[in-house]
Nucleic acid binder design. Structure first.
Lengths: 341, 341
DNA sequence: TTGAAAGCGATACCAT
DNA sequence: ATGGTATCGCTTTCAA
């Protein structure tokens, strides 16, 4: 089988303890011995067994991550940052996809619990009741969701929404539509909160959904939006927004001529649509890194107050929002069209 | 801390051995005791520690997966099938992204080796020298790459390419371009092999690259292709093909009027381009499942001959391939344009 | 059918 | 500075 610490000890003519120290606490061993042991370990291709080590130290240097849907490009990009940060910190990442299912998510937490030092739950789909049952199992950090008393990293969805509203208001829109994401999604609620900004501009808001955050939902929603008479639509995320764009193109509706479209997440493919999708970048990669940092902080000092990090947002404007059409059915043309994309 | 087998034993008034048996070898314990033990375990929320168990049994019921780039939508969709199959089989999935870096990939294999029963390497980027060093560490299955003497699951890239060539030939194309993927990619070589089919049709093939399999590579390659005079271009994968489409749109080149575009993988976003991208679906989800099955087979019977599964391909035609333009610069218009998209 | 004890691979404590 | 030994949580002989 694999080479163990005993093999190294024998080959180097020292005890297992010394090998362990030579590798993990170099200063506790005489330079001479240290070198010899390390050389032997190297030549034998020795690698400590993390499971065995974890058993006694209580630390695995593994870290679990659960996402609701890997096929949503937002998560891979967030994972980019997360993995990079984890690797820097010497942690391997145990990743699982719960496919938008809270119960599956809970099961995954159980499965991971003993094999990781902590878990990062991205946009967790668990209900409060499910959460209750897994909260104590292992240190957890929530990304994109607030659970009172627990550390979380959140992106400023409400702020991003406010910026989008201001943007559309400046372009003269008087009636916009919002397409809700999944029913239990915390980040959907946050984004929806930002819609209140519309009052300040006397903008009418029509809400649709909840929808599964998928391309197909956007296809479906596009028709509803058109029927509502809104001149702009903001989707819960880019994947849905791309669905909207696709359906509008199919129906020959000019974008942004007749209607403007915006989404959230700044996924790569937002840039590839025709016209490119206007999207709000809330800083996914950065959030991934922040989640790891938060988790490591929690692990380093378990008594620390549960930190909550709020990351700022940025609005990326592309080409699929534009001035409201002059003769919008809902608008007696008061202020005018002073904005530019 | 967490509840251990000892806690259960105490609470149930039996020994740890009995608890272990009651849970893992029910037939070895009296029904009465078994029930009691199980009830106690349940009520205490006992979960066996997989690491401790693995230490003695040599099996972890974890399975490692390494992919070169999670932001390429092909891999998430493949992982869909893979994860589903793994879960059915009672295995957790340890996933890592090597970011197209063979050395990082090798390091990840090392990191995983002791914590998983086997590893599935997807489109491995390791050089033969790197491979050499990790081959014995842990049972491995290669997906989308053949390593002599080792089990692999491959998709029929060459076949898919041949179908594409036949398709373009039928549409009257006489000069096509191929955009190579990464230099060391086995699947790129396979796809490129299929290009020989062009000879049969007397079609001229211009090759470009190798390119990193990214959107930006497509942007860049589009100009080269146009300059070459080819009337159709096949990209190594959809991500690159979408880049080609984007650049062509930017330059106002009609697709498929002036040039036809095709890619591989049938990623979701291929359907979202305008026009929708013609793409070859080689069966990613199915391949993911097959890889798990293969790995489980290897684990069940280590002496088995290294199996190699070849999965068939299917060609999905969408709207971005069309008849060759009549006055192609390379063609004195011999046969004609008899095909339809 | 059940319990006691050994052992998986590593670290940590206690000697020396 | 180094070695011996207990221990982490669990499974697996070996006895009873």
């Amino acid at each position: 089988m694999a080479v163990t610490i005993q093999d190294v000890a024998r080959a180097a003519g020292v005890s297992a303890s010394t090998v362990s120290r030579a590798l993990s606490s170099p200063e506790m061993v005489r330079p001479e011995t240290r070198m010899r042991v390390r050389a032997v370990a190297e030549s034998l291709g020795y690698r400590p067994n993390p499971a065995a080590r974890g058993l006694i130290t209580g630390r695995t240097t593994n870290l679990g991550v659960i996402v609701p849907d890997l096929t949503n490009p937002f998560f891979p990009s967030m994972l980019r940052g997360l993995q990079a940060r984890a690797r820097e910190a010497g942690h391997a990442v145990f990743l699982a996809d719960c496919e938008e299912d809270g119960a599956a998510e809970a099961a995954l937490v159980h499965a991971m619990a003993k094999q990781v030092d902590g878990v990062i739950l991205c946009s967790s789909r668990m209900t409060p009741a499910m959460l209750e049952k897994v909260l104590g199992l292992v240190p957890m950090v929530f990304l994109n969701r607030v659970v009172p008393g627990h550390p979380s990293v959140i992106m400023d969805g409400a702020g991003g929404m406010r910026q989008t509203i201001d943007h559309l208001a400046a372009l003269g829109h008087r009636h916009i539509a919002y397409l809700n994401g999944p029913r239990d999604s915390w980040s959907n609620r946050e984004r929806a909160k930002g819609l209140r900004r519309a009052e300040r501009h006397r903008i009418k808001v029509s809400r649709f959904g909840p929808f599964a955050p998928r391309f197909e939902s956007g296809l479906q929603a596009a028709d509803l939006v058109l029927a509502s008479g809104a001149t702009a639509v903001i989707a819960y995320n880019d994947v849905m927004a791309l669905g909207v764009l696709a359906r509008l193109a199919e129906r020959g509706v000019p974008v942004p001529g007749r209607i403007s479209v915006a989404g959230f997440d700044n996924i790569t493919f937002a840039a590839m649509a025709t016209p490119a999708l206007t999207t709000v970048d809330l800083g996914g990669e950065r959030a991934g890194r922040a989640a790891v940092d938060t988790l490591l902080a929690v692990l380093a000092d378990r008594d620390a107050d549960a930190p909550r990090q709020v990351l700022d947002s940025a609005l990326i404007v592309r080409a699929s929002t534009g001035p409201a059409p002059d003769a919008g059915p809902d608008r007696p043309n008061p202020g005018g069209t002073q904005g530019e994309a």
